[in-house]
Design a protein around this nucleic acid. Structure first.
Length: 476
RNA sequence: GGCCCCUUCGUCUAGUGGUCCAGGACGUCAGGUUCUCAUCCUGAAGAUCGCGGGUUCGACUCCCGCAGGGGUCACCA
C-alpha cells in the first residue's frame, strides 16, 4: 500500500472561508488518520488574480486551526518547490512529452477567433467544444501560442469517494489549454503534473471541478499516470441556501471567527459536522475523535447551509468544557480596556462567573464591564422591572438601606453573602424577585449579570456598598 | 441550452425494503432551577421523507419520468 498523501492547493487570491477550510480539513483528517502526509501547495499560475499577503494569510488560517502540513512552500519537503510558479520547468518537460507523443498542439487561433467559436455555439444552444475546431496542421509550438491537449474523447464511469459512481459521455471531453500564451500552465495541467510528481494519493476538492474531472482523467491516460482517488465535496451554501458560499456574498474569513473569539476546536468541529457525521448521535467531536472516526464515504453529497447559530452553540459548548486557567489564557486579548488595572486573579474570578453564558470571546466586554467600572445609574432598569415598578421609591430606598447595613457587616464570602441575603428576605418580608432584583440592579446597573451572591463577592465590599449608596442617593 | 450533481422538520442531519404515521442536534415556544441573563432539566410545536408513476405483500429506502436547486461549458482556479 502506498502511503497516503493528501494536499490542499489553494490559489493565493484571497482569504480562506469555511468552504475552503472544510476541504483542507478533510484532506488533513485523511492524512492524519492513516499516518500519511498532508501537503500545502500554492497554485499561483494566474498572476493577475494574485492578492498580496494571501499566502501568509492562507498559511496562518491553516495553522491557527491546527491543520499543520508536512510539506509546503514555506517549509519545503521532498518534492519542493511547492509553488507552481517555481515549477515551470516541470510543466515544460511534461508538455514536451505530450507534444512528442502527438498529444498536444499549438493553438493557431487568436483569442478573438476562439471567442467567436464560443459565441456561435452559444447561439446554437450547444456546449462549446474547442475540438470541433481542432486544426488539421497546427504550427509547431514556439511557446507564444497556447498549447492545447489533444484529447481522446470517450465515456467514463468512475467512482468518486464522496459522490459515488459517476458516468459521463465523450461529449464532455475537450482540448483544453495546457500552457497559456504567457508561459504559465493552466490549473488543469499543472495540478495533474504536481499531484503526480508529489505522489498525491487522494485529491479532495470542491464541486466546481466535478465537470472537468473526466478531462483530467483523459490527461492522466495520455501521460500514462495512474489517477489518484478523487473526492468531490459539495459546496457550502450561503444563508439563502441557494448559492454557494462565496466571498462576494459575505462569506467570512475563518480568521474573522477566530478574531471574534471562536475557538479553533469549535470551528473545526463545526466545519466537520457540515456534511459529515459518524452515524451516531454524537455532535461534539475532539480533533482526536475526528481523526479516528472521519470517513470520506460518509460525507454528504448535498450542499449544506452555514448556520451561525449552530456554530455559536457549539462554541459555547467548547468554552464551557475548558478549565478556567486555559479559558483565561485563551481569552486574554478580549478583555475590555477598563480591566487593565485588575490582576489575573480578579479577572479569573469574573471569567468563572461568565463562562457558562459566553458564546464567543468578543462578548466578554459587554458581559463584564460592570466588574471594572461603575456603570451610570440606569433608573429604567428599576422602572421597567415588572416587580419593582409597583413599589414606591421610598420603599425601594428603605430596602436598599437595609441591604446596605446588612452587607456592610459581611466578610463578602459567597457563603456569608448568601446567608445575609436570605436574612434580608426574612427581615423585609420581600420576595427574591423584588429584593434580589433591586440589589442586583443597584450593585451592577447592568441589565443582566451572574448570580447575586457570586457577583457581590467578586465586586467586594467597597464597590458593592458604594454603588448601593449611589443608587439610594439617586432615588431621592 | 447540453452535460453532470443534488432534493428527509426553519437549519445541520439519522435512515441502505417492514423495528419510521420518520430519530437526534441547533433554533423557536412553555415550565422548573431563591432575581436578571446564561447554563442545566422537563415538555411542546415542527418533515404526508420535492412531485408523479411503477416494482413489491410492504418503499424515505429499488426503477422510470418530471419539477426545483446547484455546478460546468475560460489562455480562473
Amino acid at each position: 500500500m502506498k502511503p497516503v498523501r493528501t494536499r490542499f492547493a489553494p490559489s493565493p487570491t484571497g482569504f480562506l472561508h469555511v468552504g475552503g477550510i472544510r476541504t483542507a480539513l478533510f484532506a488533513w483528517l485523511i492524512a492524519r488518520q492513516t499516518g500519511g502526509q498532508f501537503i500545502l501547495r500554492f497554485e499561483d499560475t494566474d498572476k493577475k488574480r494574485e492578492v498580496a499577503g494571501a499566502r501568509e494569510h492562507l498559511i496562518r488560517s491553516l495553522l491557527t486551526l491546527g491543520l499543520e502540513y508536512d510539506e509546503g512552500p514555506d517549509i519545503g519537503g521532498q518534492f519542493a518547490p511547492y509553488t507552481q510558479s517555481e515549477r515551470l520547468s516541470s510543466y515544460q518537460d511534461w508538455a514536451q512529452v505530450l507534444i512528442d507523443a502527438g498529444k498536444a498542439y499549438a493553438d493557431p487561433y487568436t483569442p478573438e477567433q476562439v471567442q467567436e467559436f464560443r459565441e456561435q455555439a452559444r447561439k446554437e444552444k450547444r456546449p462549446f467544444l474547442y475540438r470541433n475546431h481542432r486544426p488539421e496542421n497546427p504550427p509547431a509550438w514556439d511557446g507564444t501560442a497556447p498549447l492545447r491537449f489533444k484529447s481522446t474523447p470517450r465515456a467514463y464511469t468512475r467512482i468518486d469517494a464522496v459522490m459515488g459512481s459517476l458516468r459521463t459521455g465523450p461529449e464532455v471531453i475537450d482540448d483544453f489549454v495546457l500552457i497559456k500564451s504567457d508561459g504559465y500552465p493552466t490549473y488543469n495541467f499543472a495540478h495533474v503534473i504536481d499531484d503526480y510528481e508529489m505522489q498525491i494519493t487522494h485529491v479532495i476538492r470542491g464541486q466546481e471541478f466535478l465537470a472537468s474531472t473526466p478531462n483530467y482523467l483523459n490527461l492522466y491516460e495520455a501521460l500514462g499516470f495512474e489517477p489518484p482517488i478523487i473526492a468531490t465535496m459539495p459546496h457550502i451554501m450561503g444563508p439563502d441556501g441557494k448559492k454557494k458560499l462565496s466571498k462576494r456574498d459575505g462569506a467570512k474569513d475563518v480568521l474573522d471567527y477566530v478574531r471574534d473569539g471562536f475557538l479553533p476546536e469549535a470551528l473545526v468541529n463545526f466545519i466537520a459536522s457540515l456534511g459529515w457525521n459518524d452515524g451516531t448521535e454524537q455532535e461534539i467531536f475532539t480533533r482526536a475523535e475526528l481523526i479516528a472516526k472521519f470517513k470520506i464515504e460518509r460525507v454528504q453529497r448535498s450542499g449544506a447551509r452555514f448556520d451561525e447559530h449552530r456554530l455559536q452553540w457549539m462554541n459555547g459548548v467548547w468554552i464551557r468544557s475548558l478549565n478556567i486557567d486555559e479559558l483565561y489564557d485563551r481569552s486574554r486579548e478580549f478583555w475590555p480596556k477598563s480591566s487593565a488595572g485588575y490582576d489575573d486573579t480578579y479577572k479569573k474570578r469574573v471569567l468563572g462567573l461568565i463562562q457558562e453564558r459566553l458564546k464567543y470571546f468578543a462578548e466578554i466586554p459587554a458581559l463584564t464591564e460592570f466588574f471594572f467600572v461603575d456603570l451610570p445609574i440606569h433608573m429604567e432598569l428599576i422602572d421597567n422591572n415588572k416587580q419593582l415598578k409597583k413599589l414606591e421609591r421610598t420603599e425601594l430606598k428603605q430596602l436598599l438601606e437595609h441591604a446596605h447595613v446588612s452587607l456592610g457587616q459581611s466578610n463578602f464570602s459567597v457563603e456569608d453573602l448568601t446567608q445575609r441575603l436570605n436574612g434580608l428576605l426574612e427581615q423585609t418580608g420581600q420576595k427574591p424577585g423584588v429584593l434580589f432584583s433591586l440589589i442586583r440592579i443597584a450593585s451592577t446597573q447592568a441589565p443582566f449579570s451572574p448570580g447575586l451572591a457570586d457577583t457581590l463577592s467578586v465586586l467586594g465590599p467597597d464597590v458593592t456598598l458604594r454603588r448601593i449608596s449611589q443608587t439610594i442617593d439617586s432615588l431621592l
